[in-house]
């Protein structure tokens, strides 16, 4: 059933609407509810295919569902419609204004409505797809402060990596943080690249979500083979930022294992035809982030490598 989550009048003959698709079966009092949320950033589209596939599978085998799955494919419909990462006509990143406000601007009221709608769910999966600059392997990101509670769920999602990262105050205004402090266990998924859909990643995550539902006792339908992710417990994450300006040409495959000293790519100057920077892996490990957009300034992130575990 399609339900409105937030509605507001736009200036000329149109309403702003955020919708969710509620798929339910055997949903009596006390049943479990899982929310799948995406489209906070209008240029991140991988979640679109995940939502579509999940809705299709659940609807086709609805009798095997026990509980409620709410699918929110677009928290920022105006952004998706206009190839805009942010909320159009609003300066702040939409994922920096949660939990929102009933008396704020449109984006803040929307954020409030979304939180209010999800509140009380057993779990939430917040799907992101990096940005147009970087390609990511399917991964779950959890903060150090929530890792103890969330890690056991993160590994169910059929991703390749679970990255436990340091907390930062500025991240306290994300959807995930706002839901986690309300008791809604929320996992942030990052995968693929902005403005594109990577079908095999999406299918992988759909299998993971079905597995999570199965583990929660909400899904008795078919589930695929679920991989065991690498977990960044004590391993170092190397950030490789460009020190030069130019055009980045990758030299290693995204998602591959690289050895210390391997060439990850090079930055070239097309005007004079020279390599201005050769980017080498500082350590051996998993190349889980790789730059997709070629133009770089000094400081542009080129790659991230999770160092091999010293424990083997």
């Amino acid at each position: 059933m399609i339900k409105p989550v937030s509605v507001a009048a736009l200036p000329v003959a149109e309403n702003f609407i955020i919708q969710k698709n509620r798929i339910e079966n055997d949903a009596g009092p006390g049943c479990k509810r899982v929310c799948v949320v995406t489209g906070t950033h209008g240029d991140e589209l991988e979640g679109q295919y995940v939502c579509a596939q999940l809705a299709k599978i659940l609807n086709e085998d609805k009798q095997k569902l026990s509980g409620i799955v709410d699918i929110y494919p677009a928290l920022n419909p105006l952004g998706i419609d206009s190839v805009t990462r942010g909320f159009p006509m609003f300066d702040l990143d939409m994922n920096r204004i949660f939990p929102g406000s009933q008396t704020g601007l449109l984006a803040e009221v929307v954020a409030h409505d979304v939180i209010h709608d999800i509140d009380g769910a057993d779990m939430c999966i917040d799907i992101h797809s990096s940005n147009i600059f970087l390609r990511e392997i399917p991964q779950v990101r959890v903060s150090e402060q929530t890792a103890a509670e969330l890690l056991s769920y993160a590994v169910m999602l059929n991703v390749d990596l679970v990255w436990i990262h340091a907390s930062a105050t500025v991240l306290e205004s994300t959807l995930a943080h706002s839901l986690n402090i309300r008791g809604v266990k929320t996992l942030v998924v990052e995968m693929g690249v902005g403005m594109r859909i990577t079908e095999n990643y999406c299918t992988q995550l759909v299998d993971g979500i079905l597995n999570l539902l199965h583990e929660l006792g909400m899904w008795s339908g078919q589930i695929g083979q679920v991989r065991k992710p690498l977990v960044s417990k004590d391993q170092r994450i190397d950030f490789l930022n460009s020190d030069a300006h130019g055009i980045f040409i990758p030299g290693a495959s995204h998602g591959s294992h690289v050895n210390a000293g391997d060439c990850i790519g090079k930055v070239i100057d097309p005007l004079v035809g020279v390599v201005v920077e050769e980017v080498l892996a500082p350590n051996s490990g998993l190349l889980f982030t790789l730059r997709e957009y070629p133009v770089v300034f000094g400081g542009s992130l080129l790659a991230r490598i999770m160092e091999d575990s010293k424990n083997g």
């Binding site: 507001a8 009048a9 736009l10 200036p11 000329v12 702003f16 006509m89 704020g104 601007l105 449109l106 009221v109």
Partner: peptide
């Protein structure tokens, strides 16, 4: 000139 609902 144009306002959305909830505009401040």
């Amino acid at each position: 000139q144009l306002v959305t609902e909830y505009s401040d």
